[in-house]
Every structure is written in structure tokens, then in C-alpha cells.
Amino acid sequence: MTATARAGSVAARSTDPARTGSGDAIRTEGRTKRFRSGQVAVDRIDLVVPRGSVYGFLGPNGSGKTTTIRMLLGLITPTAGSHSMLGEPMPRAAADVLPRVGALVEGPAFHPHLSGRRNLARLDAADRTSDPRTATTRIGTALERVGLTAAAGKRYRAYSLGMRQRLGIAAALLQPRDLLVLDEPTNGLDPQGTREVRGLVESLAHGGTTVLLSSHLLSEVDQVCTHVGVMHVGRLVSQGTIEDLRTAAVPRVHVRTSRPDDAAAVLRRLGVPAPTVHSGEVVADLGPFEPEALLRELVLADVPVREFRVDTADLEDVFVALTGEGFDVSG
């Protein structure tokens, strides 16, 4: 429950009505999905994705990211709540909204016996708003942007995992979009590809496209996102700008020493909560303490301090703090 409490403070900005409203690319209120199995995969989330932002949608496996995205796009019927996209109520305005939304949902999916180009042509043909005269050019450009031009004529069946992922992104880029919803776009890509996707997202965002990027790869989010939302067991436990999230993170003190147990004992005596020891380093939340005071106490207690460091946690730590460290998936 500490996680939710903290989420409240971080998400304060998003509940401020003055700064939201129809200016948001995505806005959900109490959206809930309960599957027929009875499982509540998404539980009353209030997502706010401001226009022009790159929104990192984080969460461990099974936390409900894909389920949320499916509800946003109208693929599954929400059990409760409401949402709007690009300022229009969904799913009522889906026919008007979705042509301006590019999506990659839970990995790419195409007809295996068709080439990459033919697959894109099929999706383009299904779009009543697309101009058939520009189809060839647009498909060519989309393929070029994801670096698939050379493999465009190959059957999808023969594509590698990364090529498939790239084709999925190309499909999302067939039209100029106001909003891109990318569910784990770098899944299966090589480091080079990951970097390219990041560059692509940055350039799209620069051009004014709002991007919702779901991921469990924090490094991705860290470097490109302006906003972050964190899912945990179906709930949105934290949401805000990336700076908000960083400041919400508790600074930590790291002490490297040859006598870590003594160091931990000193910190405990001073009232620092739960210092932990691993491989010659003591780590503890700084809390309200002055780092200088702590160092002085350690030195006075004859603890041989080799290194003393205070850092604001990176997002990785925040993420782990919000979602727990266990390996088991939630759900």
C-alpha cells in the first residue's frame, strides 16, 4: 500500500483539471477490465497522456499494460469507466480517432504467406481514410523508416523476429499519426535496432506526435520519455513527468568498507531504517538524515570508509520500489 500512497503524490499533477481536459492525447477515468475468468486485469486506472508527450507505460509482466492498450483501442470491451483519445470519447468516435492512431499491440502479426509489402498494402486497403494513390509511396516510406526496404519483397514467414517487429512498427507509420501506441516496440530487436527505435520515437515526438510506449525495459523509458506511468497488478501505481518520478525517489546512501557489518550497526544505531549489506557495501535509505552527519558518525566509530556516496535513485530503483522485486509475475 505504500506504493499507492506514493503514487498519489506523484500523480497529483494529473488530477489537476486545469492542466488536462481535452488537451490530452489519452485520458481514462476508472477504466477497468475484468475478464470472464473473474480476474481483474486492469483496475480503475486514470491514465493521462498529455499531447506531445512521450509516455513510458511501465510495468512488470502481467501487470495489465497490454490489456489497457487493448481497451484504449477498442479491441476489448471495458468493464467499467470511460476514456477519450485525441479529445474524443472512445469507443464511440473510434472511426474518426483510430485512423490518426498508429498501434503496435502485443507484438507484430501478419499473414505469413504474404510479403512485408503486401501485408502493409492489405492494412492500407482496409483503411477507408487512406488515399489509394499515395499508397505505394507511403508503404515505401514506412518500410524505409524501419530499414526493411531490402526485405520488403520477402514473405513474412521468412522474417526474423526483429524484422517482424520492424514491420509492425512500419504498419503503425503508414499514415501521419497524431498518436502512436507502441506496446513493447523493441522486443526482439538487436541493440542497434533498439537504438534506432529510440531515435525514431524521438524524431516522431519532435514532429508533434504523442507516443505511448509500453515497456519493461527501463533504459528505453529513461532516455526518451517525458512522462511515465507505472502499472502494478492492474493498478496505475504512479504517473507523472519523469522529473516528478525522480524527485519522488528517495536518495540512498552507499558505504563501501572492509567492515560492512560495523557500518550497518552504526547506521542502525543512528536510526537509519533497514540498512542492507551486499558484497562489502552497505546501502540504506537516507531518510531525513544529513549525509555529513552520517559520515562523521561512521568515522568516529572507526569504520574504515573507502567510499561514501549519496545518490538519487535511478528509475530502475523507483520502478523496483513501486512494483516489488520478486521474480514472479503478478496476476
Partner: peptide
């Protein structure tokens, strides 16, 4: 709990 919100949809 989410059930109470559902009848319209049902």
C-alpha cells in the same frame, strides 16, 4: 466492485 458499473454494457 466493477460489476456494479456493468449493467448498461450487459
Amino acid at each position: 466492485m466493477s460489476d456494479q458499473l456493468a449493467p448498461a454494457h450487459r
